[in-house]
Design a protein around this nucleic acid. Structure first.
Lengths: 329, 329
DNA sequence: CTGAAAGCGCTTACAG
DNA sequence: CTGAAAGCGCTTACAG
């Protein structure tokens, strides 16, 4: 493995000069520059990145923490972030927490280790109290998730409004008995969606029945289970707002299995507008999040923070959300 | 940011001793060990990873090259690899080529830069000729994709057999006019699936019509387009083997739109057994790949190669593939 | 335009 | 059991 010293020896120049041509400095004699470039070619020399990082105190890498990459929402978000990073010569280090708070903290250690220049939290398993100590080691921002108490930049969508939009739509379709099936309320984002549900119900003077509120619901199988519970009710809801398209797909799948018609017997609204939303039958009415824009904005903000390195004014940015109507309502 | 020197000063010991306790060396006086640990706590010290990497000539990171993370096949593969890596203290650096050969080569440069200890190619846009020079800078293996000429370890599935299984199944269902819609033949994996198709057809003495062979087909919209072409044919096929579940889903979606019944008017077989295969209606008969096992095996093999660092005997490993029967056939 | 020297933060023989 | 010294491969003032 060739080093800068090898190039220096081969060309009879100093490592300093070689370094200058590597980094495209001006004030290097043209003929020497060419000589160095030729030698680098011949020895297929590439600068050692650990040495550059150690010396430069910069990694050009940002860590992105998500809960799990197999969730299409995250894979699309990461895809957009990665593109934005590459455009400016940054790398993205993918870290999944698998919903484990401890693991999330371990990933934040990357900042202390100087293995990354900054961290984007797209999933949030800890509270601001746990996160805060890390912020003094480098920029930390949130994307998608947020925390009311946190004092860091956050790029997100108005989840309460999303929940409100979904439920208002169901109410407009004439429903009064509406169920909710979402994640865990400890997470702000989930909690807010439920608040949006309550807001729409209150606005229409409709009562909220405890039995219609399902929490800790995430995937397809959860959706199936929720439907089974609904099916067993004396007076079941006629509509359900699910906190994810996969949950919605599970409800629909199971409903059809039991000969319930969608949307006639049960109407369903999902969340995210994932590809599967238009593949299942009927298509899922859903709340679309501007995933791509959100990812790009978050990565750009992060890179700006790193590049300017000044104390960035703490800011929140909220992106619009809208309803996509399909056959399930 | 505390360094090893800070800890040494604070405790009145040498950096050497501090390093010893960081690395859990034996032969450190117990009381001193505790003193150092306390100081590390207080200064919230974490070793600088660039320094460790530079000094140790090891990164504990492996690069995984895929074409695009939003492809569920890859997100599941990466998920499995990531878990296997974490289990042994390795990190996974995700690199997407977006099907661009040049970008793939740039990712291979990570090996020269010593930013990773090895590379797993789960997507392959270059030929062995281009890849080969990189192999002298560290272990490079293939997972999922393969190349007949390449002399590197490869963990993969027998794609020809997969294609054969799919088409034989259609033939057993009584079909004789069978179309194929897959990727680009420049890729060995794709080419082999088509060979499997030909093999099954030949075995049943069925002719292969050129008009029934569609290549360069990848996503949902490609599937829609393929169906539209089929619909316009004088004598259309009665079945189609698609090189991916998304393509299959596109065909089915468009078929239903035009009132063709699936499988009565057109039977469809997909590939990968992705979640969506059981969500669409009818469910997609598909070829299941042991994605998880493949990912874990590849990562383990890579870590073995890195850890033993000896010249690994060049090996190929082929994993089983099987048919999952659903409503689309 | 060019080079010698110092140093980024660590670890590992080596000597005690 | 412990420490001084060298060195991993680079870049950046500094002096010329």
């Amino acid at each position: 493995m060739a080093t800068i010293k090898d190039i220096a020896e081969k060309t009879g120049l100093s490592p300093t000069t070689v370094s200058r041509v590597i980094n495209n400095h001006p004030y290097v004699d043209q003929s020497k520059r060419i000589k160095v470039q030729k030698a680098m070619q011949e020895l297929s020399y590439v600068p050692n990145s650990s040495a550059q990082r150690l010396r430069g105190q910069k990694t050009n890498t940002v860590a992105v923490i998500i809960s799990r990459i197999i969730n299409p929402f995250f894979s699309h978000l990461v895809d957009a972030m990665g593109e934005a990073a590459t455009d400016r010569g940054y790398q993205l280090l993918l870290c999944d927490s698998r919903l484990d708070a401890q693991r999330e903290l371990e990933h934040l250690e990357l900042l202390k280790k100087k293995q990354v220049d900054g961290v984007i939290l797209a999933s949030l398993q800890n509270t601001w109290k746990e996160i805060e100590p890390y912020t003094k080691f480098g920029p930390v921002i949130t994307c998608n998730e947020y925390d009311k108490e946190a004092e860091m930049p956050m790029i997100s969508c108005d989840q309460q409004y999303g929940g409100y939009l979904a439920v208002r739509h169901l109410i407009e379709q004439g429903h009064t008995r509406i169920a909710y099936a979402g994640g865990v309320n400890r997470i702000q984002l989930t909690y807010d969606r439920l608040q949006g549900y309550r807001q729409a119900m209150a606005e229409a003077s409709l009562p909220v029945e405890d039995a219609f509120i399902f929490t800790g619901i995430y995937g397809l199988s959860d959706g199936i289970q929720v439907f089974d519970e609904i099916r067993g009710m004396e007076e079941p809801p006629t509509a359900i707002f699910a906190g994810g398209d996969e949950v919605a797909a599970g409800v629909i799948k199971q409903a059809k299995l039991h000969q319930w018609r969608v949307p006639e017997d049960i109407a369903v609204v999902g969340f995210d507008n994932q590809p599967l939303a238009e593949l299942v039958e009927p298509g899922i009415t859903t709340i679309e999040q501007p995933t791509k824009v959100m990812g790009i904005r978050a990565m750009q903000l992060m890179m700006d923070m790193i590049d300017h390195a000044g104390p960035v004014t703490y800011q929140k940015e909220t992106l619009p959300l809208h309803l996509v109507k399909r056959g399930s309502t």
